[in-house]
Each structure stands twice: as structure tokens, then as C-alpha cells.
Simulated assay, not measured.
Amino acid sequence: MSLVSLIGAIELGLVYSLLAFGSFISFRILNIADLTVDGSFVLGAAVSAVFVYNGMPHTGIILAILSGALAGIVTALLQTKLGIQPILSGILTMTGLYSVNLMVMSGKANIPLLNKTNIFSLSETLIGGKFYKVVILLIIISLVFAILSWFFRTQLGLSVRATGDNEDMCRASSIDTDAIKIVGFAISNAIVALSGALVSQMQQSADINMGSGMVVISFASIIIGSVLIKNKNITLGLLSVILGSVIYRLIIALILTTNFPPSYLKLISALVVIIALSFPNIKRKMEISKMRKGYKL
């Protein structure tokens, strides 16, 4: 792998770690697989692209985060107030967001941002060198990491974690679990939209189909990270997500250096998730098998 490919893989791993942060909140903390992310990722990219096109990249980032939060609130309301199943509510919001994203993009399937000022071109002027994208991404990720680490130790954050662990117990303790879910999904999809906004500015384009497979990518990052770092607390959990995202992108970059057809990348992503998910179970069965053999001897 060349140095350029390595740097590119690290950049993608870092920017998509924010996507994995969002999915980590819904999947690991709230214990719900939220499929909204495929739509909220594109929503963040679309909102950001529109404002970058009009010369306001920072405003685009802020409004992308707010739009993602609104998407998460819609999903949470479908679950809590209308009683729709969590998986189905995510699918419904994701489906509806396809049309919303087209409206944001003025009916265009793609918005090119070549030669438009964005936060990365600004950071290149300030930082310079080959690693300016890595530097700005590390700053943003560190900020999000610090905010999430602090938030999940507050009373509200602990309530979100408790709701994911045991919702019935939280209700018995007079905690409004519906409101807690709304907060959790809003934060989750706000971070996902931030990832989409950064990707659109980094790749200098926004496409209506760029959200396809984001759920698999985020789950792969979470699972790979959890295999390498045991999530004993929220800080280690978030660190594992960053590590998992970077490793996942390095795996994809290594595959692309071979003659493997790029059209198989989705299949590879699915296989990576399957292997990572099944690894703890396979390991446990192997340990049980060794114990049985030792007992027989």
C-alpha cells in the first residue's frame, strides 16, 4: 500500500468514525438498531453541500447537525408516540428522507463542489502539509469524543444509558423513557449528519445515493472495535469505535490494492461484520470444547 493510499484510508476511517459514533449510541447504548442513518447521513451531506456551494461551509456544518437531530427526533416519535416497531420506524424515516434530501438538493441527484471553499481547503491554508485533513478531523473527533464522554456521565446521559439497559426499570423509577429516547436518537443522528457533512466537503460532492450501506459500515466499525477493545465503559467504547473505523478502512484499502473487483466491496463489508459478530461466539464454543476435552482426559 502506498503512502497516499494509507493516508486516504486513515482520513476515511476518521471521518466515518463519527458515523459509527452515532450508530454506537443507538445500537450499543439504546440497544436499538437505527436504520435512519442511511438517510440522515445523506441529509447532512446535502445540507452541507448546499451551503458550501453558496460560500458558507461553517454554517453548512452547523445546520447539517441540526437537520440530523430533527431526523432522529422523527424516528423516535414514530417509536414512542405512534407505537411503530424500532426497525420499521427507522426504515420509514430513511425512506421519507430520500425525498427530503432531493428537495434540499433542489431536485438534483448530485451537487459538485469543485473549486468551492470548504473547511478542508481553509485548513490546508492554515496547517499545510500532507496531513492537514487528518489534523482537522482529529480536532473535530476529539471535540465530539470529549462532549459525548462528558454527556454520558451527566444525569441525562446516565438516564439514556439506563434506558438502553433496562427500560422497564427506568419507567418504574419515574424516568420518562420516551423523552430519553428522543434525546438519544437526536444526538445519534446529529453526529451521523455531521459525518455526512464532512464527507461531502472532503470529497467535494454530495450524491443522493451516498448513504447506501452506511448501516453496514457503522456496524462493522463498532463490532471490529469491540473485538479489539472491550467496552467496559463509555470512554473505551468510543475509543473502540474510532479504532474499528480506521481498521475497517485499512482493510478495504488493502483489498483495493489487489485485483479484487470493487463491485464486491459491499459483500466484503457484510462478511467483515458477520465474522466480527460471530467471533465471540466461536471463541466461546472453542473454549467450551477444550474444557470438555480436558474433562474427558
Rank of each mutant, 00 (worst) to 15 (best):
N54Y: 12
V246F: 00
T258H: 11
D176L: 11
A9G: 06
L78M: 14
S121I: 00
L14F: 03
L6P: 04
L243S: 11
L228N: 12
R28F: 05
I141P: 02
I139M: 11
S159Y: 00
A190C: 08
F145M: 01
A69M: 04
F120V: 10
V183R: 06
K266L: 14
M214N: 12
L198C: 04
K232F: 12
H58I: 14
I10L: 07
I288Y: 14
M286T: 11
I223C: 10
N281E: 15
A146T: 10
R249W: 02
T154S: 08
A146D: 12
I147E: 11
S200T: 02
M210F: 03
L277M: 14
F24N: 10
M103P: 15
V50D: 09
F27T: 13
F145Y: 03
L238W: 00
M103G: 15
L243A: 13
L137E: 00
I65W: 06
I136E: 06
D178L: 07
G237P: 05
A193R: 01
S195G: 05
L12D: 10
A197C: 09
I224G: 11
L143Q: 12
A9N: 04
I140Y: 06
G157T: 02
L236P: 14
A276H: 08
F152I: 02
K108C: 01
P86T: 05
L35I: 13
G237V: 04
I62L: 13
I268H: 10
V42N: 02
S2H: 13
S106L: 08
L156R: 15
L148S: 05
N231P: 11
L3G: 15
D176M: 06
L148F: 03
F21Q: 00
M214D: 09
K290V: 05
V199A: 01
I208R: 10
G39I: 01
I7H: 03
I217T: 12
L12P: 08
Q201N: 08
L277F: 11
I251N: 07
E124I: 13
T59V: 15
N110A: 12
I288V: 13
I252R: 12
K81D: 14
D165G: 15
N110R: 14
G13H: 03
I229T: 09
V227Y: 05
I217S: 05
V273D: 01
G128M: 08
T257G: 14
A190T: 13
T95P: 08
I136N: 10
I208T: 06
K230I: 06
T93M: 01
V246A: 09
R284H: 09
A220N: 08
L256A: 15
G68A: 09
N231D: 13
V160A: 10
L239R: 05
D34E: 02
V216I: 01
T154C: 01
I208D: 04
I275E: 11
L148A: 05
T154K: 07
L14Y: 05
D178G: 11
L277I: 09
S269F: 07
D207M: 14
S173C: 15
N110F: 05
G294R: 13
V216A: 04
I29F: 07
T36M: 04
T59F: 04
L43R: 03
L14E: 00
K285I: 09
V144P: 10
L256K: 15
S218F: 01
F260Q: 08
Q79S: 11
D165F: 07
V160M: 07
L256F: 05
V42R: 00
L30P: 07
R28A: 00
A197K: 01
